[in-house]
Design a protein around this nucleic acid. Structure first.
Length: 104
DNA sequence: GCACTGACCGGTC
DNA sequence: AGACCGGCCAGTG
């Protein structure tokens, strides 16, 4: 069962275009709850729609990859990001100045 | 309904 | 610059 909050978060993630990434804080701000980044992480962590939702495009505020429930964990997440043309620095973080997608 | 947990963040030591 | 601690929101037991 998906709650409205989770659906909202997933919707935001789905709005992120290919080749770009967003942060948990950005999502939290976009939904009007900048302090709910923790809940956002939890919601995405449940990841009910792994196929539909490009959760691998969500990274930490510093640009670090973070975790990933999908295949390969963090490693697989990095691989997916690289596959979309996103440059990974030190094999663990992305350049937010280039690939960060901001809502509204 | 209380308490613990979590794909986190910011400030401090 | 790296490690530690507290806090915040929503979900689950």
């Amino acid at each position: 069962m998906l709650t409205d909050f989770q659906k909202t978060v997933l919707t935001r993630v789905d709005k992120v275009p290919k080749g770009k990434v967003t942060t948990y804080s950005q999502i939290a701000k976009s939904i009007g709850k900048p302090k709910a980044f923790r809940a956002v992480g939890t919601a995405v962590g449940k990841n009910p729609n792994l196929i539909k939702t490009p959760c691998h495009r969500v990274v930490k505020t510093d640009g670090m990859i973070g975790e990933y429930s999908g295949k390969g964990g963090q490693r697989g997440k990095i691989k997916l990001l690289k596959s979309e043309g996103i440059e990974i620095e030190n094999e663990k973080k992305v350049n937010l100045d280039k690939v960060l997608f901001k809502f509204r």
